[in-house]
């Protein structure tokens, strides 16, 4: 456990809460990409599939469940509760263009060819790209909602913390291996957020 990692986790959580709070307070999903949220639901489902077979810590288990719960709530809010305000026309990015390459990459580029490892790799690749429909929507509507921008900033800060945490751990711990998949995807992800 590392202070950067914990800070990253909480900033990530804060971002998700900000978005869900915006949805419920304004009762509108204007400016929010339902497709990005759908991708994040897929990301967390794939990554947290190991909840069923592995126990790391109470902190880990609780946050994984909270992340899943918030993301599913957000998806339900967009596609069910406030679907009348969902801007289907503008949120037009074809997500299969993101999902399919990630699935192919996960099958060939993973730590071990096991279900959990492939799921994990898939979740890391897809997380790097999941924000793309949101960025596409913001660029199309030409007006950036400040709450959505705070959400995007939180997610960018979270990934930044994680990448720094990995690099720091690698530098200071002789027996740690640099996880190339995670670091490379993390850097790609950061590029999208700085955009």
């Amino acid at each position: 456990m590392d202070i950067l990692q914990i800070f990253g986790d909480y900033v990530h959580l804060l971002g998700m809460i900000i978005l869900l709070a915006k949805l419920w307070l304004t009762k509108s999903c204007a400016g929010i990409s339902g497709k990005t949220q759908l991708l994040f639901a897929l990301v967390f489902t794939a990554r947290n599939a190991d909840l069923t077979i592995r126990y790391v810590s109470l902190y880990n288990t609780i946050l994984k469940i909270v992340y899943l719960a918030i993301t599913y709530c957000t998806v339900l809010s967009i596609f069910l509760f406030f679907r009348k305000t969902y801007d289907r026309k503008r949120d037009a990015f074809r997500i299969e263009l993101l999902i399919l390459p990630c699935a192919v990459f996960a099958l060939f580029l993973n730590k071990a060819f096991e279900t959990i490892e492939v799921f994990w790799a898939f979740s890391v690749y897809l997380e790097a790209l999941a924000i793309v429909p949101q960025v596409y929507l913001v660029s199309k509507s030409k007006q950036a909602d400040s709450v959505v921008m705070s959400y995007i900033s939180c997610l960018g800060l979270y990934r930044g913390c994680y990448v720094l945490h990995w690099l720091y751990a690698y530098k200071h711990s002789p027996n740690s291996q640099l996880e190339h998949i995670a670091v490379a995807s993390g850097v790609v992800q950061l590029i999208f957020y700085f955009d």
Binding site: N60, A169, P174, N175, E179
Partner: peptide, 10 residues
Amino acid sequence: NESVDVHDEL
């Protein structure tokens, strides 16, 4: 010094 396992992270 503990090594970092990214699989144990969120």
